[in-house]
Structure formats: C-alpha cells, structure tokens
Simulated scan of single mutants.
Amino acid sequence: MDTPVLEARAVQKHLRKAPRKVRLVADAVRGESVEKALKRLEFTNKASAEDVLKVIKSAAANLRDKFQEERFDNEDLYIKEIYVDEGVTLKRIQPAPQGRAHRINKRSCHITVLVAKRDQESVNE
C-alpha cells in the first residue's frame, strides 16, 4: 500500500554564473523527459547549458542509485522540478573618475533539479 515515491534530486551550489542567465536555460527544459532535455541542452547556444545538463544527468543517476532494484531509461524519467536560486554575491569595486568608485556585483546561483518516473496513466493520455 505504501509505494515509494520514485524521484530524486541533485543540487549544484555556488555556480559562478548569474541566476538570470541560467534561468533562461532551465525554463527551456522544465517538464520535459530527461532524454529530450539532454538532447535540447546539447545544442543550446548558452554557456550555462553545460552546467544545467550536468545537474540533470546527476539527478537521473541519483534516481538509479536510490532505486537499484528497478530499471530506468531516460525516456521514462522527466524533470518534475527545476529551479535556479540566487547564491552569494561577491562585491567588488571598480575605480571611477574623480575619486569615485563603482560597485561590481559578481553573482552566483544554485541549480536544483528534481527528476521523477513518469506514471503510465499520464503517458497514455
């Protein structure tokens, strides 16, 4: 009666890329199957596509490791949740004319991916 929830997650913390730029890539693959997302990210012309790809692969591997008695293909798995949170911001100073100083914010982000097995009922519909 108690069936285990077939899902696993992976987190990449302190990635030195702005969260606004990484969210563009994450939004493109949200809700897709893992196989389709990996293919799409492979040909996406964004620097953060490689980082998102790595986290999705890690989440799929975590699911296979967590439930070793079951067999999972990438077509059976889908991205249930993917979100990009803001990390720490490194504050730097750029010298400016007339003794002033301009602030430079070097942003970072955290990528979280939750991968789950697709239900057979939702596949048939």
Rank of each mutant, 00 (worst) to 15 (best):
L6Q: 08
D65S: 11
N74S: 03
D119P: 15
A8W: 03
V34D: 07
Q68C: 00
G87T: 02
K106A: 10
K66H: 03
A101M: 11
K21F: 05
P95S: 10
I104E: 08
E69M: 01
A37E: 08
K39W: 01
E7D: 11
G99K: 04
A116E: 12
V22E: 03
R107I: 01
F72E: 05
I93W: 02
A61N: 14
I93Q: 06
Y78L: 05
K13M: 13
A60L: 04
K21D: 05
A37N: 06
Q98G: 04
H14Y: 15
H102Y: 11
V22Q: 02
E70H: 07
A10Y: 10
E81Q: 12
R30F: 07
Q12I: 03
A61F: 01
A26S: 14
L63V: 03
K46Y: 06
H14C: 09
L53T: 05
K39F: 07
G99N: 09
V22L: 03
K36R: 13
A101K: 09
Q12D: 12
A61V: 05
K21P: 03
E81N: 12
V52G: 01
F72D: 06
N124W: 13
S58L: 13
D85I: 00
H14Q: 14
V52P: 00
K36D: 08
D73T: 15
A96N: 12
D2W: 03
V55E: 06
V25F: 05
R40Y: 05
A18R: 03
F72N: 02
R71K: 14
I56K: 07
D76I: 00
Y83S: 10
E7R: 13
K54R: 15
N74W: 03
E81S: 05
A49V: 01
V22W: 00
